[in-house]
Every structure is written in C-alpha cells, then in structure tokens.
Amino acid sequence: MFLLRDYKDILKKIKNKKPLIHHITNYVTATDCANTVLALGASAVMADDPLEVEEVVIHSDALVLNMGTLNQQKIEAFILAGRKANDLGIPIILDPVGVGGTKLRSEALKRILKEIKVSVIRGNMSEIKHIYGIEEMTRGVDSISDSKDGGKEISKAIAQRHKCVVAITGEIDYISDGNQTFSIRNGHKMLTNITGTGCMTTSLIGVCCGATKDIFMATALAISIMGIAGERAYEDLQDKSGIGSFKVHLLDAIGGFTIELLEERGRIDGLSY
C-alpha cells in the first residue's frame, strides 16, 4: 500500500534526521508541544523574540506558528520568521487558534496569510470556517462546530485558495492539498478533555514536514499518529476518567508509535475529486 510505504519513509527520516522544529507558540501548551516533538524523535526550540527569530529559523527544519496566546510582539515575530523561512524553503505550519473570536486574531490572520506563504493550516472546524469566510462564533479556542459539516469541501477550497495543505481536526479529520483529500477516523473523545492536543498535533505536523518535502503525506501521517496515540492512551488507563494519567499515556503512545500500529489501526480514506 503506497500510504504505508510513504509513511514508513517519513518515520525513518525523522529518526535519522532528528529535525529541529522552531515554535513561536502558545505559552499554555509550549511544554506539551516540546515533549510531543521529543517523543517522536525530533527537537524543539521555543524562540519568539523578534530580535532572534530569523537567526533561529536558519538552523531549523520547520516553523510552527501558533496563535493561541497572541500579542503584537508575537505577530511581528511571526512575520519576520515566516519571511525568513520562505526565503530558505522551510515549511511553515500555521495553527490559527481562536481566529474569529476577536478582531486582533482575525486581523493577524489576514496579515499572516498575505505576507507569508504557509505550507499547512491546521485548525478545528470553527477556525477553518472563519478562514473560509463562513461567519460562526468561536467560543474561546474550542470548536463549537462539527468536523463532518462540509469538511472535505471546505478543506479543498481553502487549500486551492492558499496553495497549501489544509487540515481540519475533529471527530473526523480532513486533510486536503486541493487535489487529493483524506479523511481520518482515528482518535478518542478523551483527547478533547485535556488542553493542548490540537497544539500538539500541529507540532507533530511540524516534525513530519521537517523530515520530507511531501507536505500532504506528512500532515496526514502526523494526524494519524495523534489519533492512534489517543486510542492507545485511553486503552492503557486504569482509571478511565483520569485526564492527568491520560496525558502521560498519550506522550508514551506517541513515543511508541510504529508503522505496524498504523497498518493495524489506521482508518484513512482517500477521497478523490
């Protein structure tokens, strides 16, 4: 199966290359994202001062821009780091956390998409719908919309508009590059009970994109890893309501991910247009 061959190749490259993923990210989940990157076999750096971000990007294999705890200094860091990454051909993964919730976030997103060429946009359905242009209230940074609600059409349209890969994560995940679209049905509802699993997923995308030029397949692999890890983490819980223990098991499951697990448990559907 070509998917497994491609995924196996990316996992091997991560192990051999140990890509460095530069995050300008959400301070609420920075530690979780760093540990997620380490668990999969890569390295993370969290540098967000505009005076150093360009220098850090030079040494990085991917750049993650997370809008979770947004401020003006961070927006400037996004732009500076993003332009440098574009100059160097380094993939940029954008997580538009809470976009649509405030004017600051909406205007920041417009500027980012205008001034930077991003490789991947990953968000929940509310966030992605805002980018698409559908008005919908965003409650905090959480999605109040169902990922099944037009996910494949919206992901394809935004991917074509911005010439990038778009990933909508939720009960069903959709990944599109404008030509091909996958749906992924792995995961567990416990993933929504702890803060940061979306940010962690974005970091996993950064790791996979930092190891290959196949951005579409890298994004699909990263989302599959999080979904399967979530399932395994829940299965390993002694107390099925223990969210703290679930988080520990989740990191363990990411660290123990193998291609054999994907072959056994992956629920990926290729949707052709």
Rank of each mutant, 00 (worst) to 15 (best):
T181D: 05
C199P: 10
G206Q: 03
L261K: 15
H249P: 05
I225V: 15
M226H: 12
T202C: 15
I205H: 00
I254H: 02
R267Q: 14
R267W: 05
I268T: 01
D214S: 13
L261Q: 14
I194F: 01
V248S: 14
D236I: 08
I243Q: 10
A253K: 15
S241D: 13
L191A: 02
G187M: 08
R267H: 10
L251A: 08
L191N: 04
I184E: 02
I194A: 02
S183I: 05
I194D: 02
G198A: 05
I194M: 02
A211G: 11
A233T: 08
R185P: 01
L191G: 05
I223C: 11
D252H: 13
N193W: 09
N193V: 01
A211E: 12
G196F: 03
L251P: 08
R265G: 03
G270D: 08
M200K: 04
T201V: 06
K213H: 13
T258V: 01
M226F: 09
K213V: 10
G187A: 03
G230I: 09
G206E: 02
E263C: 06
K213W: 05
E231R: 11
F182R: 10
R265S: 14
A253D: 06
G196Y: 02
R185V: 04
G242D: 15
C208W: 10
G266S: 01
E264L: 13
T181G: 07
M200T: 04
M200R: 06
S203Q: 12
G270A: 13
G256I: 00
F246D: 00
E263A: 14
I205Q: 01
L237E: 00
G266Y: 06
A229Y: 10
I223T: 15
A233K: 03
G242H: 12
Y234G: 00
Y234K: 13
G230V: 03
T197G: 09
A233W: 09
L261Y: 13
T202D: 13
F216C: 00
E263W: 04
S224W: 09
D269Q: 11
E231S: 08
F182I: 11
E235H: 11
N193D: 12
L204V: 00
T197P: 06
T212C: 10
G227I: 07
I215G: 04
S183K: 13
F182Q: 05
S245N: 15
G198I: 07
G187S: 03
S241Q: 12
